[in-house]
Simulated assay, not measured.
Amino acid sequence: MLLVADPDPEVASRVADELGDHAIRAITCSDGAEALLIAGAEHPDAVLAATALPTIGGAAFVRTLASRTGIPVVLGVSDGDGPAAAEALAAGAAACVARPYRIGELLPMLLALRAMPAEGPLLQVGELQLDPGSLTVQLRGQPVRIPMRELRLLQLLMSNADKVVTREQIHDAVWGGVQNSNTVTVHVQRLRQRLGDDQHDPKLILTIRGVGYRLVPPA
Rank of each mutant, 00 (worst) to 15 (best):
1 M>R: 14
2 L>A: 03
3 L>H: 07
4 V>K: 06
5 A>L: 03
6 D>P: 07
7 P>V: 12
8 D>L: 13
10 E>L: 12
11 V>W: 00
13 S>H: 07
13 S>R: 15
13 S>W: 00
18 E>S: 12
22 H>K: 11
23 A>W: 06
26 A>T: 09
26 A>C: 15
28 T>D: 04
30 S>M: 06
33 A>W: 08
33 A>H: 10
36 L>N: 07
37 L>Q: 14
38 I>A: 00
39 A>Y: 01
41 A>V: 04
45 D>I: 06
48 L>N: 04
51 T>A: 08
57 G>W: 00
59 A>M: 13
60 A>E: 14
62 V>H: 02
63 R>E: 13
63 R>G: 04
64 T>F: 01
64 T>G: 03
68 R>A: 14
70 G>Q: 04
71 I>N: 01
78 S>C: 04
82 G>V: 06
82 G>Y: 09
83 P>R: 13
83 P>V: 09
84 A>Y: 01
84 A>G: 02
85 A>F: 03
85 A>L: 08
87 E>Y: 01
87 E>T: 12
88 A>T: 05
89 L>P: 06
93 A>R: 01
94 A>Y: 03
94 A>C: 11
95 A>I: 00
95 A>C: 09
96 C>I: 00
96 C>E: 07
96 C>N: 09
97 V>S: 05
100 P>L: 11
101 Y>H: 15
103 I>P: 03
104 G>E: 13
106 L>M: 05
106 L>E: 04
107 L>F: 02
108 P>L: 03
111 L>Q: 14
113 L>I: 15
114 R>I: 12
115 A>I: 12
116 M>V: 13
116 M>I: 12
121 P>W: 00
123 L>D: 05
124 Q>T: 13
125 V>H: 08
126 G>E: 07
128 L>K: 01
128 L>N: 06
130 L>G: 00
131 D>F: 10
132 P>Y: 03
133 G>E: 09
133 G>S: 10
138 Q>I: 05
139 L>H: 12
140 R>P: 07
141 G>T: 11
144 V>N: 12
147 P>K: 02
148 M>R: 12
150 E>Q: 13
156 L>Q: 05
156 L>I: 06
158 M>D: 09
159 S>T: 10
159 S>Y: 00
159 S>P: 05
165 V>M: 11
165 V>N: 10
165 V>Y: 07
166 T>W: 04
167 R>E: 15
168 E>W: 03
169 Q>E: 15
170 I>F: 08
171 H>K: 04
171 H>F: 15
172 D>R: 15
174 V>I: 15
174 V>T: 11
175 W>L: 08
175 W>K: 01
179 Q>E: 15
180 N>R: 14
183 T>N: 05
184 V>G: 01
184 V>F: 01
187 H>K: 12
187 H>N: 09
188 V>D: 02
189 Q>K: 15
190 R>Q: 09
193 Q>F: 02
197 D>N: 07
205 I>D: 00
205 I>K: 05
205 I>E: 03
213 Y>L: 06
214 R>V: 09
215 L>Q: 09
216 V>S: 11
216 V>Y: 05
217 P>F: 04
217 P>A: 07
218 P>A: 08
